[in-house]
Design a binder for these strands. Structure first.
Lengths: 239, 239
DNA sequence: ATTACTAAAACCCGAGTAG
DNA sequence: TCTACTCGGGTTTTAGTAA
């Protein structure tokens, strides 16, 4: 895993050319594309597209067989490695971005559900702490919300099972382990959980946080204060 | 989530400029960098770096405060979205690449362990099938091995617990659910499991596969035949 | 129909330097 | 010091075509 490789300015166009080829590839092993089509794909002329393919071949990022009218392109190991490296770098970048939200009024309807006995006992047991019977509402802007969802895709979650009482059904609740801390005081991290990210309230991107202390008092928060959510990547197995 | 956005040829340099800024950012909210340093980062002159920053500002990918000698740069929502989109695209590309390996001689030492009673009963129970008492060895080239590891990072796994008998200790074994099928016959997928990816044998990238049938016969495989591993992304919670 | 060469046009970079 | 303008030179693109 050498760290010396970087795409240099005179290779930007080639990198994007490779990227577009990979997109076209899908699950197949090789691509049939002529330089005119490739030009359309890249928004450049046929001539430039042709030259790009020559460049990629010289770089050993692709290999090809020109067979009369047909040009069959394969991505080489090196080419795949180039893509993989960029993926890893972007992943690292996105992982390092902190998710921030603003303290929002109200306790969130989640707060009401937490206190219900059928849920509460499970929260205690499965989260490993005895939660305050209410939630902290954090309002995330589009990009923080989008990033949070992206990060949660690959994350393990805890399921609080739904149940029935005489009147109604209570659905499953999904939680994700996290820490929260105020932007102003990064030292003071509190173990917490994000509740049911799926449901959006009031058309805003509200995320409800569950923790042992009453966070508004504990962190001395006012509406609009910024709070950071730090996800916990569990390493535990499936079963 | 508009899908209309694509980085165009006249924006490649700007995209990479943004990428390098994001790398520099880390967990901070803003970057203090002058155009000379930025030039070094991008391997271009101070003048070009300066122009790049102007471009990024016009694109609304960054915002900045020039405060006499100091230039403070923040990535905008749009800028973050640009990065996020590329991340998603690359993720999609890598997900769609099939992992292939060549059938390799021998049964792998894993085959010996599978048959041991302390393990075997767990395999049966936790994998949901009664495995053949031997493994299929697949030899992956560097890039397939690298990709496999990358994909497994975010994946759930099944732990087969270690145990002790009178003579020795048997360690934990990690398995990942997957399907396997021969490259020649994509229709014929068999439920299988990848054993303990961590250990490399003989300096090669050997991956051992566990399945109910004796795969060499079932697929009529010879050494060197190519077999595809398709990972199964479980949606199950942690507990 | 292809790919890809040549040559002119368009574009970009960086040295010099202003503010 | 810094950013960023101008402009000459170099590079890249594309139109026209050859193969």
């Amino acid at each position: 895993m050498s760290k010396d490789f970087e795409v240099a300015p005179d290779n930007y166009a080639n990198w994007f050319a490779l990227y577009h080829l990979c997109q076209k590839l899908g699950k197949r092993k090789e691509i049939h594309i002529n330089s005119t089509e490739f030009g359309v794909l890249l928004s450049v002329s046929q001539q430039t597209a042709s030259r790009r393919i020559q460049n990629l071949e010289e770089l050993n990022w692709i290999s090809r067989n020109i067979d009369g009218k047909q040009q069959i392109i394969e991505i080489t190991e090196l080419g795949t490695e180039i893509m993989l490296r960029m993926y890893r770098m972007l992943k690292k970048i996105l992982d390092s971005i902190l998710i921030a939200g603003e303290v929002s009024e109200g306790m969130g309807e989640g707060g009401y559900y937490v206190a219900i006995e059928g849920y509460y006992n499970q929260f205690k047991e499965k989260l490993g702490f005895e939660p305050y019977k209410g939630t902290l509402n954090l309002d995330l802007d589009e990009i923080n919300y989008s990033l949070l969802r992206e990060k949660l895709i690959d994350m393990r979650f805890v399921t609080i099972s739904g149940f029935k009482d005489e009147n109604r059904n209570f659905g499953d609740v999904k939680c994700h382990h996290c820490y929260v801390f105020p932007l102003k005081d990064k030292r003071n991290k509190v173990k917490a959980a994000i509740l049911n990210i799926d449901r959006t309230h009031h058309g805003k991107n509200i995320v409800e946080i569950l923790a042992e202390p009453f966070l508004r008092d504990y962190f001395n928060l006012k509406d609009g204060d910024r709070v950071i959510i730090e996800l916990i990547y569990e390493d535990k197995p499936l079963s």
